[in-house]
Amino acid sequence: MNNINWGKYSKPMILVALVVALTVLRGTTFLSVGNIANVLWSVSVIGIMVCGTIFVFLLGGIDLSIATLCGFCAVTVVEVIHYFHDTGLGLFVGILAAIAVGALAGLFHGFIITRFGVPAFLVTFASQSIFQGLSMVVTNNKIVSCTAPAAFTAIGSVKILGFPLPIYFMILMALLSWFVLRKTVFGRYVYSVGGNATASEISGINVKRVTIICYVLSGVTTAIGGIILASMTQQAAAATGSGYTNDVITAGVIGGVSLLGGEGTVPGAIFGAVLMGLLNNGLNLLSVPSTQTGLVKGLVIIVAVAFDAMQHADQSRKKVRKVVKKAA
């Protein structure tokens, strides 16, 4: 017990430090309710997506197709709404179609990865190109706007108690994802497969099935993110969601999810998403252009992963030192 897990407390402290620093730097703008709602609104899509991709991260896998799949799902929902707009069923069918697209994409990833043993980053790297191409084909490389039905635009903009709807979606998704990971047998299996796939196999876990389901979940939350993003911006294009791959990975990594697998929690990941939103927003208020936040995000990923990797290396080195000590 005397071993306080500083990693556990360092995150809230970073958050507090950041808020303090930004408040001092920018006075009241930063702490206003409007701005906080704004920050949360801007991170809600990332927050929703990370709720699904965290399953993939926990396996030690990765999904590089998040951005273009998000775009393709946004395009899908908008195009289907346009196609069915006479029937009044457009919204319903559109959302279903987009989620189905996301789920199928995940199924495809999971199948190729488990059946052929191809590294996850390569499969998703290749499919990112496929989704981008499909979006461009469907939209004919144009931005498709979508301002009706009202129910669709409401998804991204209606406010309840001063907070826009997507924030509630994010909270709902986070609760769901937290429940699945923390409370169900499947969640236990995900941690176990990510921690030691061989031991899991021997413990009777169908590792391939768990892997495929994780990629499907990642696809589904990416689709939901795409739908909400389309609704927020009332348009969709192949470029919708570009940059989100890095954002989602960064959010996870800031939130203590190890990209090497087996470690991480949903609250952590959501925290990471919010922190990143604050960072974006703060940098924005400090007049740092959005094009340059990539620098910070990239550094964060490297530092966090290098830290994980060093710890792993350190543990094995400690073991060696122990042996050497024994030997001495």
């Binding site: 990209l259 090497l260 490297i302 792993h312 290396a313």
Partner: peptide, 23 residues
């Protein structure tokens, strides 16, 4: 030296170098 997996490390530097370009 830092033992970051290749695809993660270069994914991060991809956005870092792009940001530097803008800067």
């Amino acid at each position: 030296k830092l033992h970051v997996p290749e695809f993660i490390g270069t994914l991060a530097t991809m956005s870092i170098f792009r940001a530097l370009t803008y800067m």
